[in-house]
Simulated scan of single mutants.
Amino acid sequence: MNGLTSNPWHDFSDVLIPLFITTRAYDGEIQFLVTDLRPWFVDKYHLILTNLSRYDIIDFNKDTGVRCYPHIIVGLRSHGDLSIDPARAPHNYTMLDFRMYIRDVFSLPPEGQGIPYKETNKKNKNGGTSTEEQKPRLMLINRAGIRKFVNLPEISAAVQAAGFEVLVVEPLRDMSLEDFSRQVDSCDVLMGAHGAALTSFFFLRTNAVMLQVVPWGLEREAMSYFGVHAKNMMLQDIEYSITVEESTLYEKYGKYHLAVRDPEALRKQGWQLLRQYLWDEQDIRLNVTRFSLTLHQLLRTLGE
């Protein structure tokens, strides 16, 4: 549990998905011996950990006893960043299987139910208590640190004006994941700037939408870290790539800085510079007029 845990993307990519690949086929008949145990991690993901194993977790750094097992697996199997290769996984598990597993563990509605606003409108048409058309609900992730929306109120107002109900959320490490999973499940769209909080897409229903706002120069990362996996999990992936004028790098450094005029050339100079400018120093000021076209596309997608 060491390394980059505490970042949700790494929690899933580096620990939970490899743990699923390695142990799910044992149906709970396995015990975890954990080095560098982080109590907060066990508390936050206890539903997953206690489902994968019926036995107490052992803090292996503090364990003084002699333990005898008929079989031991050292380390975890990983197939790559936030991914599962069915050809290498027990029972040919897929990322879709993992999303369904997560939804089951958190007691979210079973497969077969439509996205929330369609389900509500269907019930109302079939004799429900309300005759008012339900608006699709969009969760807008508010990042407090890097790659944040600097004009969040303006964005929220534009989303509402386009015909959505908006739920603005700032995910925190110590929040109840059970409560948060139900919030995400209640939404038809998960929207946020490229970053770890989009890992919440595991709690979405089939055919719900992940709307990823792609910072300047990060199109490649947006697709490989989230876009591909969303599609593999039967979610709809819509990406809005900002223009350079929508990046605060343009305001800060001007149009002639390498990070502004040629991100690909910056990429060739190495990870450290790429991270410094495109990941750590960049915030987003959405042009809501331009973004409204994506919102209308999103409404059409949800209505199909």
Rank of each mutant, 00 (worst) to 15 (best):
N51Q: 04
L211W: 07
F202P: 03
N124K: 12
P39F: 04
L96D: 02
Y253L: 15
P153H: 07
E133G: 11
L177K: 07
I242F: 03
Q183W: 09
M233W: 07
G65V: 07
L293A: 09
Q282F: 00
R24G: 04
L278Y: 04
K44F: 11
R182W: 12
D262L: 02
E221F: 01
T248R: 05
G114N: 12
I242D: 00
Y69F: 13
L235S: 01
D27V: 07
K135W: 12
A230H: 05
C187N: 09
L278T: 11
E221Y: 01
F226L: 14
L4C: 08
T243E: 13
L108F: 08
L299R: 14
H194G: 03
V189H: 06
W40E: 08
P263K: 04
E111N: 10
R205I: 10
I72N: 01
A265D: 06
H79I: 13
L278I: 08
P171I: 05
A208T: 04
V169K: 06
R261V: 11
N124C: 06
D188H: 05
L218Y: 03
K148Y: 15
D56E: 05
P116E: 11
L218D: 02
F12G: 00
R182C: 13
F164V: 00
S156H: 01
W40C: 12
T35K: 04
H79E: 09
S247P: 02
T5N: 14
Q297N: 14
S241D: 06
K125E: 00
V189N: 02
H257S: 13
Q236C: 11
L190Q: 15
Q160C: 06
Y240N: 09
A230Q: 14
A89F: 00
V169A: 01
D11Y: 01
T243M: 09
E245S: 15
N2Q: 13
Y253F: 12
N126K: 03
M1R: 01
R99A: 06
L218S: 12
D262C: 01
A89T: 07
G128C: 14
S53I: 10
E264K: 14
L33G: 15
G114E: 15
A89I: 08
E264T: 15
S181L: 07
V34A: 14
F202Y: 14
Y250C: 01
T23I: 13
S292V: 14
L167A: 01
R143P: 03
L76C: 06
E165A: 04
Q297V: 05
H257D: 13
I57Y: 06
A222L: 02
I21R: 00
T131N: 01
M1L: 09
G195T: 14
L177A: 11
Q236V: 13
A162C: 07
V15C: 02
F20M: 09
N121G: 04
R137N: 11
T64R: 04
H46F: 06
F32V: 11
R99G: 04
S107T: 09
R143I: 08
I155W: 05
E221Q: 01
G80K: 00
L19G: 05
K62R: 15
L140E: 08
V288T: 03
H91D: 13
Q269S: 10
P8A: 13
I102D: 05
L33H: 08
L4M: 04
R182F: 10
E219W: 10
Y250L: 02
F60E: 12
I84V: 10
L138T: 09
L286A: 03
Y117K: 05
R88H: 02
F41P: 02
Y101W: 09
E304V: 15
I84D: 07
A161S: 10
T131L: 03
A144T: 15
L249C: 08
